[in-house]
């Protein structure tokens, strides 16, 4: 189990979260965590992103595993059920499109830029200290605030379930993980079989 360069990608995840505290526009970089997994799943038909490159998964492993911040209990059965996993994916998408809609409204001039980061889809945390203006349209900043909220929300949920259950419990219901698995299933057929040997 030799360490490879991609085993250090948790540093990138940490840096991403930190940069959002200094300049919200860095939030755009998070799109990589959306497009790379989808690209790998569509092009190669694997969950290569989860299995190798995902820095967030590594960060949770590290905090919950090596640093011992996890109770290491089994996740409740309902949380690993397909109903919950797919339901959470749909919910996540709906909230994501709502965020895109807000961005559109700012682009269209129908709404002012809101310098807040919305946590857990509910709490609006003032975040104006990480905004120093932009040479682009205010909508560009609105997307950054919105997207950073998505990333921070999933990190918070990941940390909570890491503490309560196993370190990488988030990976059970992570929308990107669920979505890439669905893409793989669509591409590779559905050969579900219980192990026979």
């Amino acid at each position: 189990m030799k360490k490879k360069w991609y085993d250090a990608l948790w540093i990138a995840s940490l840096a991403y979260l930190a940069l959002g505290f200094f300049n919200i526009l860095f939030a755009w970089l998070g799109l990589l965590c959306f497009f790379i997994p989808l690209f790998i799943a569509v092009a190669k038909g694997t969950k290569g992103y989860c299995n190798r490159y995902c820095g967030r998964g590594q960060l949770l492993s590290l905090l919950g595993g090596r640093l011992g911040l996890s109770r290491k209990r089994d996740i409740p059965r309902w949380m690993r059920s397909k109903v919950f996993r797919y339901g959470f994916l749909v919910f996540f998408f709906v909230m994501f499109f709502q965020m895109l809609w807000n961005t559109y409204l700012v682009f269209a001039g129908a709404q002012d830029l809101g310098q807040v980061v919305t946590l857990l889809w509910t709490f609006k945390v003032p975040w104006q200290w990480a905004y120093h203006g932009t040479v682009f349209h205010a909508g560009v900043a609105q997307f950054a605030f919105g997207f950073y909220g998505v990333m921070l929300t999933s990190t918070v949920l990941g940390l909570i379930t890491m503490a309560l259950f196993k370190p990488r419990s988030w990976c059970v219901y992570c929308p990107m993980g669920t979505m890439t698995q669905l893409i793989c299933r669509a591409k590779n057929g559905k050969p579900f079989r219980e192990e026979s040997h």
């Binding site: 990976c171 993980g177 698995q181 590779n188 192990e195």
Partner: peptide
């Protein structure tokens, strides 16, 4: 023994196996 119908294919198990006995099959 993996209950494959419930596996989320995250690959966490692959990373910790000391003898490389596990693999994630086609993201499934």
């Amino acid at each position: 023994c993996v209950s494959q119908g419930e596996c989320v294919a995250c690959g966490c198990c692959v990373k910790v196996c000391p003898v490389g006995a596990l693999e994630v099959f086609r993201g499934l």
